[in-house]
Design a protein around this nucleic acid. Structure first.
Length: 333
DNA sequence: TAGGCCATCTGGTCCT
DNA sequence: AGGACCAGATGGCCTA
């Protein structure tokens, strides 16, 4: 059960997930900690103060008893002090374990953030929203799979945003190039739709004059599929095309944000390469890399050709998705 | 400034 | 006994 060898002091001081747990509580190190991590530093200072007060208490205890009389010294008292020290040490060890555990939890949550349909390094989803969105995403994908036919995009997106806060809904809408005004969540968490078809917005690529649609590279997803429509629709949220390239007119992706890309008529937005994916997931349907990155989990259904221009040149790795052509064809018409 | 989010500490409980 | 897990408390940071 022991996850950290606390009998090794350096391990106590260096939790696995990067907390700057200081090696000592000296004033210098605390001052440094205060600059880099004031939160942590304050707690460390509290610990240090506790240690000091404990020492003072111990000194008092060593000098006097409750009545102020000179204290009896001997093994019994020494044992009590040892027990106190031991208790304090155990508490500190427990704190370190708890920190480490929470860091692990946060790391897992971060990996989850990377695989839900809206990921941004700069505008992170909160923990609770990440969990909600992940749940909705799983649910929406399950519904799509169980239906075995062309998914209803509106329903998909609605499911995705169900129960999310308005800011998160806005963020998701931004990721999907949807106009959030057309995609409102009421107070009950029910998603309301008004305005134009989300399909339109879904295939909107502002700043791009692509003739070749996302997911089509010539040897692409479905040779019968027609090109994507190109809308110059400008919704309220266009976070990924902040600096269109003046030469090419092609979109410039903020490397801090997830560019949208299309998959099977469902959006798929990605991402950095999540380290854990592609190793085992047979249905890795999403990973596309940012420009200059080498892409895609090995077992992903798609891979990106080396000369492919992100994020549009995708190649079907196998015929593993039967409805793909139908879906693409339908949506692209 | 209030509220949301977060990291951390802490004590309790359960389990091995 | 000791580790994992959990929830409450606390304080810092950030934003509307």
């Amino acid at each position: 059960m022991l996850t950290l060898p606390f009998d090794e002091p350096h391990m106590i001081c260096e939790p696995r997930f990067g907390a700057n747990y200081p090696r000592d509580s000296s004033p210098e190190s605390l001052e440094q900690e205060q600059r880099h991590n004031p939160d942590r530093a304050s707690s460390v200072m509290r610990e240090a103060e506790d240690d000091i007060s404990d020492r003072e208490d111990d000194d008092r205890d060593d000098d006097q008893d409750e009545d102020g009389l000179p204290k009896k010294r001997g093994p019994r008292k020494k044992k009590g002090k040892e027990q106190m020290d031991r208790s304090k040490l155990r508490r500190q060890e427990a704190n370190a374990r708890e920190r480490s555990r929470m860091h692990g939890l946060n790391a897992a949550l971060e990996s989850l953030r990377r695989v839900v349909p809206c990921y941004s390094k700069t505008q992170k989803l909160s923990k609770i929203e990440t969990l909600r969105l992940a749940k909705n995403y799983i649910w929406a994908l399950s519904e799509t799979l169980s239906a075995g036919k062309r998914p209803d995009l509106l329903a998909f997106v609605q499911t995705l945003c169900k129960g999310l806060s308005q800011p998160t809904t806005n963020l998701v809408a931004g990721c999907l190039q949807l106009n959030a005004r057309n995609f409102l969540t009421d107070h009950n968490g029910e998603v309301m739709f008004s305005g134009r078809s989300p399909y339109d917005a879904m295939y909107s690529y502002p700043g791009s004059d692509m003739n070749t649609p996302p997911g089509h590279s010539g040897s692409g997803l479905d040779s019968s599929a027609k090109p994507f429509r190109h809308y110059s629709y400008s919704g309220a949220y266009e976070p990924y095309y902040e600096n269109p390239s003046p030469e090419s007119g092609s979109p410039h992706f903020d490397s801090q944000l997830s560019p949208p890309m299309n998959f099977n008529g469902i959006f798929s937005l990605k991402h950095d390469d999540p380290p854990d994916y592609g190793k085992s997931s047979h249905y890795g349907m999403r990973y596309c890399s940012a420009p200059g990155r080498t892409a895609l989990a090995h077992n992903s259904m798609y891979r990106v050709s080396p000369e492919a221009r992100f994020p549009y040149d995708l190649h079907v790795r196998s015929q593993s998705f039967q409805a793909q052509g139908e879906v693409n064809g339908s949506y692209h018409n």
